[in-house]
Design a protein around this nucleic acid. Sequence first.
RNA 1: GCACCCAUAGCUCAGCUGGAUAGAGCAACGGUUUUCUAAACCGUCGGUCUCAGGUUCGAAUCCUGAUGGGUGUACCA
Length: 589
Amino acid sequence: MDFILEAAVRAVKTLFAIDISAESLSLQQTRKEFEGDVTLVVFPLTKFSKKSPEQTGTAIGEFLVNRLEAVESFNVIKGFLNLSLKNSYWLEVFYQKINQPGFGSFPSNGKKVMVEYSSPNTNKPLHLGHVRNNLLGYSVAEILKANGYEVIKANLVNDRGIHICKSMLAWQKFGNGETPESSGLKGDHLVGKYYVIFDKEYKKQIEELKNQGETEDDAKKNAPLIVEAQKMLQKWEQGDAQVITLWKEMNGWVYAGFEETYKKLGVDFDQYYYESNTYLLGKSIIDEGLEKGVFFKKPDSSVWIDLTADGLDEKLVLRADGTSVYMTQDLGTAQLKYDDYQTDKAINVVGNEQDYHFKVLYLILKKLGRSWAEGLYHLSYGMVDLPSGKMKSREGTVVDADDLIAEMEATAKEQTDILGKAADFPEVEKQDLYHTIGMGALKYFLLKVEPKKRLLFDPNESVDFQGNTGPFIQYTYARIRSVLTKGGFKDDTVFMPIKTVSPVEKDLIVQLEHYPAVLTEAAQAYSPAVIANYVYELAKLYNKFYHEESILKAEEEAVKQFRLKLSAVSAEIIQKAMHLLGIKVPERM
RNA sequence: GCACCCAUAGCUCAGCUGGAUAGAGCAACGGUUUUCUAAACCGUCGGUCUCAGGUUCGAAUCCUGAUGGGUGUACCA
């Protein structure tokens, strides 16, 4: 559409003797209630033309019709100049631009980006909140790849700390040697079970101490279980063989469990970082910051940074006893990740409750003179709420990831059976289809919403399969595949001129043409939702086209070939876009 | 207290780099299948874009203030 803008600039120059930039003009798609394909808003030009909006629009319209081969006609309504483009133009866009091998993916831009996501705790299984994180991270990584980046997917595993000791201790005390093998429980669920047991027993002890007259705060500090857990953490840090062995064994169970869940979710990683390796990092950065005068020491020898000039608070970066805090560690891991890969950008996919932390982290790195800090970005997303409110692990009000996936598959099977769709499919294909549809519904549901918005998930009203949903789009794809097969479509068909392009065909071409711009926008905004909304619109348009125009029984062979081609390209873009969301599309359903 | 985020149809969400009469899906109601997959398509119903000011030819969109909701502000991670 740039050629229209350029011509409009020439028109303004010729007609009104004013130089304007193409950016100052606004060209948009014509609203469907008006005649035309594209619309130029002429209000801003009236100050140059010194004429009414209608006169200005008409003058430019005449100029464009005379000079541009592609423009068929125009009309002016109020301050809007609507241009209709010729059929030949749309066909050319379709054959010369959209139907080209490289369409819809960008060549390498030579830049590297790390996307860190998932970052689980190894003391409990994954829940719905983690699912949102994983899907977002994976999708953003794919979107960046499609935009030409080299992407490294990283997972920073939180495998150390007092919370891990809690489940270890509870297992020691109450576990009777239970293992995933002996209990048949998935490793992460087994460990999570003892985390919950710890909390229950701990609360009991607090109550007892309170009954003995201690204050709540004292009771929390003095309960034997927590004291013992802290002792265990110290032993762990000292490298106590027994503790380390137990830690390794239980972590092994958890990792096996996570692997299974990741596999079902369809996410993966190129690089793992473990906090047990990185928790001591960052102290040298503290020294550096003190030297540079970025940090300062308080009398108790704790180290701080004063960010009040930046509208933030004072922030602790090292404890008085010289041990690391969260910020110390994160400074260290940020440096480590950069040293490993020299990335141009690094994304942290982390919930919005850590907005402040990342703001501070990035600011500190900038103050320390890390030029690469400019490329850091916190992809912050809202929590997933249940109708009952927030999810809380300890209160058991969480939606477990594995349960959820199983439920989605069961629902997919149910729906498929009701519709009688897969009755004659081989068993393997059936199972595959249930998984594809179930996960398609779940992923689309979670990704179609802007990341930063909170999300309401009602487990009772299980995710829909109709309308603006994953399965709707998957169905559209399967439908196209079916018609292509029946039509004996081969990808080597050559261009055959046709007389007219119907309105819905034109709409479809326009939508397809938008794809690269949408891809760029999604990368800039780090938002899979942009892709989700796009592909939904595309599927909707295709269904309309499918309903309005006969493909296999088209009036002429040339028209049939054109429609088949249009269908094939639509399927390809649907497949590509869904791939960016981590959603598979079935050949039939 | 201070900081950040959110507020659009009964519900779930688009639209937000200012443009025409604010769009989808779900729910409710009605229609479409001798024809390429009806998980589809078409229609009806549904709106004080939280409120009040301001900027502008033009505001859901930008600015200010208020209200409601969420989160953070830990020598937890």
